[in-house]
Design a protein around this nucleic acid. Structure first.
Lengths: 352, 352
DNA sequence: CTGAAAGCGCTAACAA
DNA sequence: TTGTTAGCGCTTTCAG
């Protein structure tokens, strides 16, 4: 039998409900009930058990509870990465919601690699997480999809039709149409679009938004360039450099991705391009430093914080309220164009 | 008894080793052994079991393994927040290390709130995480400390003496001394320091670095101001505004915190202060956008990525190699001052 | 090489 | 109001 000192908790073996039971002279089930505020247990016993629990520093074993069919009270968050403002804001918001609702957050960073994604979702399944927030990678493995059939999940931003129907994202089409229209109205015609590959639902929607701005304006897309690639800073940097150094550089660039924007800004800064005199730029997403860039960067401000929070509460509540009345499919449309000083009329007319 | 279709995995109940055993006509223990590549199981059986496992989409239950005394293969990461470059870089690095070593990462965001910290560490203890990375809050509860006595953990950046001895951080004193010396050498004397409270180990070390720069230069700290507060953007903004609007504003500001730096830059930008003509600024930490600020922000570049990676590998290895030969206590000193264009000689001599 | 059985810590159904 | 007991799914002896 174990012995405990009253003040120190250095006892190396793990404290179980049984230890608490012995120490407080009741049975194991009484301990369990006391901790769950079971109505059948007398207030006096509850208080006593609680006192012993505190003294011994007992924590309930999640493993045992899960084995009995209980919830793990863990939620998975599967993201391409976490070291940029866009996703880290999402993580922060979701994390706080989970904490308030009594869940722990298991973070999986996939680097947009489907193998990594599969491995991590296997782990989440093994841990019997109660649910998963996922920004799906592309070419998600069939096994991943099967695994997710067994776990409540909600997609964020990107939308893979093979996964569950629940999705929260932004209106990608609208926000790129607004950004592009802004440039068109300023008189730009030779506009370049730098965005993610069409394999990403976001990439395809944003590109279609870009194109629809031309249609709205009744313009042909003659002098337009579209650069599609990985939604990474590197790709943005390379694409921007390529455009700036081309024979007939565009008079404006629209960025269709947060990390792409960073890359573009980096390239443009090192190449010493005068913005907006020689080139107008519209960025994507509005981290707080955008106002610092040059004389201020014109960007599409996305309500990612609200999006993540709304999504998190909806999801966590639908987990407890057994798939409540809420609708499945949502779009947060409220992205707005913040016009600062990186966009202006083009120096010279591009169409006569 | 359950029935499985060969192609679909929609069976709603959970697939256990027993299901695999039945389906493949061997015993449960054989399944377990096959999956652990036990030498005693024939290659043919292993292959067969594996095939069935893949077909049924079986995933081992972590809960059951943990109950048998196994490792949860989960690691906790306890941070004040995640929505800024500093901590999100740490999270990214640690996440990748954990993935490579076969661990999942449980993310806890404390907001520097000790109650939240306690709650989250209780959860981590309940989940029987194998270890914890923690940036401790201040005034950590005694119960938190007791809980951590039972869980291998390593502190990051901040150092609470009441917790375990393992710590990885930066040389806070050195980096602020370097930053301050730079300003002194440029001729500044009326220098303001904006940093975290002394309750934070980082706050106290950085302040002492600031002061030692004056000592090194043989200067009294007559015209110096020290603003101490929460290491938040808001505090940085307020402190900077206060200084700029004071009767005798400083000719230079040293920031001793990443978020404080953001706040200072924000204030200085909105107040339209001419940098470096009227005010020199040294920032803390070097996210990629620092080169965009004004003509480029002079900052202290910290090796946070390397720090986190080193720490993660050391920690994860010492978890498996039962507290290996590595030393306990580490400092990564290699922070360097990146001089850009936010620092210059002061407009007029402050000391005659 | 493989199977049977005990038990990890907890919850919940059944007794008392 | 409280105690007893049977598993949850796995690993790990000990027997074949």
């Amino acid at each position: 039998m174990k012995k405990f000192s009253t003040t120190s908790h250095d006892e190396s073996s793990i404290i179980t409900a049984r230890d608490v039971a012995e120490e407080s002279g009741v049975s194991i089930s009484t301990v369990g009930r006391a901790l769950n505020d079971d109505a059948r247990i007398s207030a006096r016993t509850i208080a006593h058990v609680r006192e012993v629990v505190d003294r011994l520093g007992y924590v309930q074993s999640m493993a045992a509870r899960v084995m009995k069919g209980g919830s793990s009270k863990q939620i998975g968050l599967v993201l391409p990465n976490i070291n940029n403002d866009f996703y880290s804001t999402i993580a922060q918001s979701i994390s706080k919601c989970c904490e308030r609702e009594g869940y722990s957050l298991v973070l999986s960073v996939t680097d947009d690699n489907r193998d990594s994604e599969l491995q991590q979702i296997r782990d989440l399944a093994g841990a019997k997480v109660s649910g998963i927030f996922i920004v799906p990678s592309i070419g998600t493995h069939a096994e991943t999809i099967n695994l997710l059939k067994r776990i409540p999940h909600v997609q964020l931003l990107r939308n893979n039709r093979k996964l569950g129907a629940d999705w929260f994202g932004i209106d990608d089409k609208q926000c790129l149409r607004d950004a592009t229209s802004h440039l068109i109205q300023l008189g730009h015609r030779r506009i370049a679009y730098i965005g993610g590959l069409e394999k990403y639902s976001t990439g395809s929607n944003r590109r279609s938004g870009f194109r629809s701005a031309f249609k709205d304006a009744g313009l042909a897309m003659r002098s337009v360039t579209e650069e599609l690639g990985q939604p990474s800073m590197n790709f943005g940097r390379e694409a921007a450099a390529r455009l700036v150094n081309s024979i007939r550089p565009p008079t404006a660039i629209v960025c269709a991705g947060a990390q792409i924007t960073s890359g573009v800004l980096d390239a443009v800064t090192s190449l010493n391009v005068k913005v907006p005199r020689d080139l107008s730029i519209v960025g994507f997403s509005d981290p707080f430093w955008c106002k610092f860039w040059g004389q201020g960067l014109t960007t599409i401000r996305l309500p990612i914080d609200e999006l993540a929070t709304t999504c998190a509460y909806w999801f966590l509540h639908s987990l407890s309220n057994e798939k409540s009345i809420y609708p499945s499919h949502n779009i947060a449309t409220s992205s707005i164009l913040v016009v600062r000083n990186s966009t202006a009329r083009p120096k010279q007319k591009t169409t006569k």
